[in-house]
Design a protein around this nucleic acid. Structure first.
Lengths: 228, 228, 228, 228
DNA sequence: GATGAATGAGGCTTCATTCAT
DNA sequence: GATGAATGAAGCCTCATTCAT
């Protein structure tokens, strides 16, 4: 689950397509999904027409249906693309880090920064998932769970090494995930007062205050060398 | 756009209604908005037709347009109705309580319980706000901010009385608001493991661990008489 | 099966309609189906758009969907309307006739005249039935079988009274039904040489020659008083 | 299926092809038309896409447009191919037969058997001819008339030799043609009760009863040696 | 000669909104 | 005040046809 076996940016097990060339299929799906993420994020799924997506992607409306089953399918892929970017970038940010607390802080910080980079798209996932039929919705939930596990593992490592007190790992994971997502969901308000880095700093302080064990508090200074 | 002739808790001032009798207007708007909340929550705004709302409300489709400007207007009122219920019930739950820590805990717990009671509707607010034009969206944000202040005041009181350490009240407020909302947003997952009361308990533990001052920790046992 | 219990022109067990008023429903369905028969007959089902039908019926395109499930449904009703007219008019033409041979001749002649009157529509039934899903197609086959029975009963009566020789009633029925339908199916050629009355005359001669018993031949002159 | 490399029976003069090699042209048109007959027969002209035809014929969609003007052109050739098979097989079945009555019976029987062999395709001709523009439709009517003449000649021979009474040859021809076609048009019902051979037998009995002269009746036993 | 990706016009259908009753 | 039939503007999607390779 750590490092991806598949090339980055890979979208979904290619749903049946009329087009044969696999490379072309990937490129087109990518191209169309990107346009869709932007538009769906901006004006909402239902307010965006397939023609809009086609125009923005620079293809004809008809072509979209050679790469996607229907409009819902575009949304599915668009949302998965966002979630996928979490799963790719969080592990990448942690390469080379070994201290559990450092890893934890980096994972959370990266999650927040990815959300920040794709803020609109993150909101899209919240707003539009219900627009999908149950089966497709499940796909998204699964992908999301996988991402959560990345955070959960970091927390568990901190608990195992005694830096965090005994706590309900899953529960804390969800609070941290929501902490990251909140930056997107409540951006209209939070951004008035914080930059993303300030937000991260505030959050890490709060949640570490909630989680650190005595040993953890003692270990902390070595993790925050430059500051405080 | 609003004009509340009097108590702010009133459901949207008749944006311009063809009907004269004010009592009837309020009743009709209430009746229709309730049906709308249920349907919008269940199947989404765009998947719900005005006819659906009319059917569920037991009125004709045409009648709706004598009490609402357009479909967006129904959504606006529906969302405001949900937020309104927060603003009504949280203060109600705190009547007679004076200990700042007790008041804090009760406010958070009540918020969670209200979210639980109107879970689908809470999600609706997240999903559909963007469907509204900017001006109407602002109305919702304002109403939301007002609700947040209820929590913020409780936190501030705890800080002022020395039970909470010095902390960024607004920041913590947002974390707690998201904590309550998360129960609705991630219910599909959280409810597998927690009841709403367990969720509240876990959350209060975590966030109090993050916020309590030394004095707060000493004060705590008197607040949790029945347990521990 | 003889005289209809239901009022003439009645179309199909009213498929679920959004409109309440039964009289209006019947009128609208009639109005739209008539326009459809004409257009479908003239330029074919697929070459006719729903908008065409709406225009010819003098209603909006949207209205059609308050009275029909989809375009196929219009076709179904259009075809059934044609078949229905057979079932109504054949019995009507035989009222007051008692001689089996006279009744037989009148039934066949009427069938041909009805086909002639709705020639294009008859062809429509042949051309377009396959366009319908299996279930709806069965409805049409059943209605057709009922019409055939009207002819079959006349033949059987002739056999029973000894005017026709022993013969396979069902088989002859089908030949006569096809004889009537052929006037529509091959009209482009037959009408060059025959009027509908001449065609009827020729056909009755041929098929009576094939069917009459000795007794039948003796009885014949009394049946053809004015001629031969 | 057929091979006459030239005589008039040839599949449509290449309406204007981008391809030079005449043999290839014939082969391709044949290959594509065969696939089309099958598909058009099965699911109807409009329900079949050009891509479907290409897939079944094992060629690309684009290639079809190097051998056919448009989709209508495929239909035209497909229908002509069916009618053509009548014109080829009926004479073939009569080679070596000289008795007019035997020839008549064989012609009708063969017609029925060819219809049976290409039942779906026969229905196709009825269903889809109207889909073609007037000019192309005329081509089909002409081909059909030619086939009818094969039957008409047999009847005329019987009349000339005194085996049939004086009768309207063209009229009877049409009845017999429809008799054969009916097997396809009403197969859903007729096949419940008759095999194709039983159907032929019944039909010949009926129509011979209608046509035979006194001399014909006397001659009959010599024609039906094996039976009765 | 053959391919098949790409186009884009046009069809069916839905649904917010109006208005005569 | 209330109804619900009627409208008509879009939207999604299909598919015949073209054209660069």
């Amino acid at each position: 689950m750590r490092a991806d076996e598949k090339p980055e940016g890979d979208l979904q097990p290619p749903i049946k397509t009329r087009v044969a060339d696999a490379a072309l299929v990937r490129r087109r799906r990518q191209q169309i999904a990107s346009a869709a993420v932007e538009l769906f994020s901006d004006r909402g799924y239902y307010r965006t027409t397939v023609q809009d997506v086609a125009d923005k992607a620079g293809v004809s409306a008809g072509l979209i249906y050679q790469y996607f089953q229907d409009k819902d399918d575009i949304l599915l892929v668009a949302i998965l693309e966002v979630i996928e970017s979490y799963r790719t970038e969080i592990p990448a940010s942690m390469v080379g880090l070994s201290d559990p607390l450092v890893r934890f802080r980096e994972a959370v910080a990266t999650y927040c920064r990815v959300v920040d980079a794709r803020r609109e798209a993150t909101v899209l996932a919240y707003r539009s998932t219900k627009s999908l039929p149950a089966e497709r919705r499940r796909l998204i939930m699964e992908a999301e769970t996988e991402t959560n596990n990345l955070i959960a593992e970091c927390i568990q490592a901190c608990v195992d090494s005694g830096l965090f007190r005994q706590l309900d790992v899953e529960f804390v994971t969800y609070q941290l995930v929501m902490f990251a997502h909140s930056w997107a969901l409540k951006h209209w308000r939070l951004s008035r007062k914080y930059t993303i880095e300030q937000y991260i700093e505030q959050g890490l302080s709060l949640y570490m205050a909630a989680c650190l064990s005595q040993a953890g508090w003692r270990h902390l200074p070595s993790v925050l060398p430059g500051r405080q």
